[in-house]
Design a protein around this nucleic acid. Structure first.
Lengths: 94, 94
DNA sequence: AAAATTTGGTTTATTTTATAAACTACTTTA
DNA sequence: TAAAGTAGTTTATAAAATAAACCAAATTTT
């Protein structure tokens, strides 16, 4: 009947992050913050959850002397999003 | 950029309930329980939330001597679902 | 040059939400 | 008549999202 909605993706902010990363392939913390309008704390927490799940990679480096965190979606992340969308289709007609 | 995902609908069980009610127009508690495979407690709580939001009506009656709760989606509920789907489309390409 | 502000975050605490467990009440079956 | 099933509600617990507080370095303001 209904397929399970991956709880890691079934979250407004995490879905937004994944959605942005699908489009740009690589994005830093500030970019994600601008686009999602999330608080830094919330964004930091949700990025970490996606990283632990293996859906994104996170590289902490420096741009000059300013710290810079860069995120990229992984192949696993792309597959997870595709599966999530398929599951959604068991609930709604898109 | 991203539209807000109505938190009342952005819940696996509540979305399933609304999805079922869109299709059948009227359904009792047991039917929803069968189709969603949710626990009675969880189903009861989520039905009540949808009722308070005005997305469904809930009629408590009897089938013979056995209590029977019947749910129907409201016009408001249908609109909310449509808006939710539109909002989802700002996150994913369906 | 000291103080305040901004950037780029992390950690911790609070609130909200979902879920599960326990309970009520009545009915049917063994 | 005792046990089990139906149809739920209420309450407690677990998990999640969000916000608040904080840290460190750099930049700007006075």
């Amino acid at each position: 009947m209904f397929k399970e909605l991956n709880p890691l993706l079934h979250s407004e902010l995490r879905l937004a992050i994944i959605s942005l990363l699908i489009a740009v392939d690589s994005a830093d913390f500030s970019y994600l913050r601008e686009k999602t309008a999330a608080s830094a704390g919330n964004l930091s927490v949700q990025i970490e959850k996606l990283r632990i799940a293996g859906y994104i990679t996170v590289q902490k480096g420096y741009r000059g002397k300013i710290p810079q965190t860069t995120c990229k979606i992984t192949a696993e992340g792309i597959l997870a999003l595709e599966a999530y969308i398929e599951a959604l289709k068991t609930y709604i007609t898109l």
